[in-house]
Simulated assay, not measured.
Amino acid sequence: MKKQLIALTLLLSGVVHADAVDALRDFARDVKSGKANFTQTVTSPDGKRKKVSSGSFEFQRPNQFRFVYAKPFEQTIVADGQKVWIFDADLNQASSRKLADALGATPAAVLAGTNLERDFALKAAPADGGLDWVQATPKQAESTIQSLKLGFKGKELAAMEIVDGFGQRSRLDFSAVQANVPVAAERFQFKLPAGADLIEQ
């Protein structure tokens, strides 16, 4: 009886995790635009130092997104489909680079890109913290991230966890998620503020 119970538990957990992979595939296929708020916690490789920031996120497929960090420092990241712009309000400085060079196998590619399974190998990960997780491993050897996990609550994207090439861990927790809502086109257009410096890469 105990063996049967263990087998049943494993089977059910496998079904749950497979659903998380399906939820990510459905998200990539069916959610064409969206908005959310986020809280980001960055933890140093030794696990001792943490930095918390918050802001809002908007996207429109294909390859348009806008991250706005409001606290503790203001920073805006905008992709218009051709280029990615990063504006640091404190420095009054912007940088830009071609989208193809910047996007690749990155978290933004999962959220706003169009080629999820071309860029990532997807695998179910153990449920944790009330969320079902999917491991998305970059297929590009030169990717700047070691690992990427996405957490779903049912069909809704709730969290994302990234470990970069230096072992630094970033976790984004999403709230007030709105899927397939219209987002104004100008939200994905970057206008250089007056007096700001521009560095093109």
Rank of each mutant, 00 (worst) to 15 (best):
F38T: 00
D164V: 09
G154T: 04
V78M: 06
L198V: 09
E186F: 06
N92P: 06
K51D: 15
A70T: 15
D30Y: 06
W85C: 10
A89D: 10
A18E: 01
I86R: 12
S33Q: 09
P45Y: 13
G129W: 04
A158V: 00
T9M: 13
P62R: 01
R169H: 09
K48V: 12
E161A: 11
D197H: 03
A105W: 10
G104C: 01
K51N: 15
T9V: 14
V16T: 10
V177E: 00
T144Y: 04
K71Q: 15
F120G: 05
A20S: 14
I162N: 05
L131R: 11
K139D: 10
G34E: 04
L116H: 11
K2N: 11
R29H: 11
K48M: 12
R171I: 10
D128M: 11
A89E: 12
N37Y: 01
G34N: 05
Q140P: 03
G195C: 08
S54N: 14
E156G: 07
E200P: 03
F65M: 02
A185Y: 05
L111Q: 00
N115P: 01
A79K: 04
R66W: 13
V31M: 03
K155D: 14
P193G: 08
P45V: 02
A28H: 12
K149P: 12
A28I: 07
D19F: 09
A121K: 13
D164L: 08
D88E: 13
R169A: 11
A194S: 14
S53R: 06
A196Y: 02
G47T: 07
A194R: 13
K50W: 09
L8N: 07
L11G: 10
A196F: 02
W133R: 02
G195D: 07
A125T: 07
F152R: 05
